[in-house]
């Protein structure tokens, strides 16, 4: 843990994620504390804590021009190790899932990731990329199960401005939720800058965008980045709102997302958020989300970062699922790219 990393998390993300800066303030002070009391001693211990696993966790999304999808998993006891063989134990099968608007509805069907490639490209690529799996490697995943539209109804896609209800029936439980797809907003322009530290300028560069926030308060953003043909990736802090900059136009640093499953507690100041010099097409997807959806990501990201912070308190994730945990979120997205000229 270095002072460096905290400073960088702060300043890189300030405008983009104003709250990061605020928590960065604590972290910076925390670092000072660590330096002063380098005598701190760490020891592995055993905690005898009761847990209540097997809660149903919903991860479902609907985006403009894309079909809805839902991943159903279960919670496990914290100290159960996860290995590649029991990954499948996470997934909840045989659920009845219905997505509906005021005028229409669709019942989702369950697919295994190993057959993702057999789906029509329009669904498969989009869905795989959606949660960070490259279509080529998807087959390598045993038993990742996804609920999405049936092959007979592949044109059921999200429409901007609509409200989508979700109803899940599984194991005698009923879970419900509802979300909206807000009108999207995108950067007026994108540009590149070299890495600020000359020593790294040969290997990395930065991407900036010019954002005009809409005049009304209450815009909630989530962004994804994609380099060349990689999947869309998110940063450890992927959401921000316009509380601090409502209606303004300004420049914003766009950090490159981290590969999924990477350890969020590891942070390299000089490389994290920077784009690789080999990346030639820098694609950004900027989504508008509604407040409950935003609250989910905001609290989840805090839930992850509050782990092990002696100055912070634990954060429970705010879910918009009635009868369960997780999220049902709509994305109003626009995707744009900066193509680098070699």
């Amino acid at each position: 843990m270095s002072v460096h990393s905290y400073i960088s998390t702060n300043s890189l993300s300030i405008i983009k994620r104003n709250r990061t800066f605020y928590s960065g303030m604590f972290l910076l002070l925390g670092t000072l504390f660590c330096i002063l009391f380098f005598t701190a001693c760490e020891k592995e211990i055993k905690l005898n804590v009761k847990s209540n696993p097997n809660e149903i966790i919903v991860e479902g999304h609907i985006e403009n021009d894309l079909p809805p999808y839902v991943i159903l998993t279960k919670s496990i006891s914290l100290y159960d190790n996860i290995n590649i063989n029991n990954l499948s134990n996470f997934f909840v099968h045989n659920a009845r899932i219905v997505v509906s608007t005021d005028s229409d509805s669709v019942e989702l069907v369950e697919y295994n990731s190993s057959i993702l490639q057999s789906l029509p490209d329009s669904i498969a690529i989009a869905i795989a990329a959606q949660f960070g799996i490259s279509i080529d490697s998807a087959a390598a995943f045993p038993d990742v199960s996804i609920y999405t539209v049936p092959l007979t109804n592949t044109n059921y896609v999200g429409v901007i401005g609509k409200k989508y209800d979700l109803r899940i029936e599984v194991n005698n439980q009923v879970l419900t939720s509802s979300t909206t797809i807000p009108a999207p907003v995108f950067f007026d322009s994108l540009w590149l800058l070299p890495h600020p530290n000359a020593a790294y300028a040969d290997s990395f560069f930065q991407v900036y965008g010019w954002l005009q926030d809409p005049p009304t308060m209450g815009n909630y953003y989530r962004y994804f980045t994609k380099a060349d043909n990689e999947p869309f990736l998110v940063s450890t802090q992927s959401v921000f709102d316009d509380n601090f900059f409502n209606g303004k136009a300004f420049q914003i640093f766009i950090p490159k997302g981290k590969p999924i499953g990477s350890n969020s507690s590891e942070f390299d100041f000089n490389t994290d958020g920077y784009w690789d010099i080999a990346d030639s097409v820098c694609t950004i997807k900027l989504c508008q989300i509604d407040k409950p959806h935003y609250d989910f990501w905001r609290t989840l990201e805090a839930n992850r970062s509050s782990q092990g912070n002696p100055f912070g308190s634990f954060v429970l994730v705010k879910s918009n699922i009635v009868g369960g945990k997780g999220v049902w979120g709509g994305y109003g997205s626009i995707t744009g790219s900066y193509v680098r000229v070699p």
Partner: peptide, 9 residues
Amino acid sequence: ANTLSMIEF
């Protein structure tokens, strides 16, 4: 902390 679940892996 006592339980673990997965969102976006």
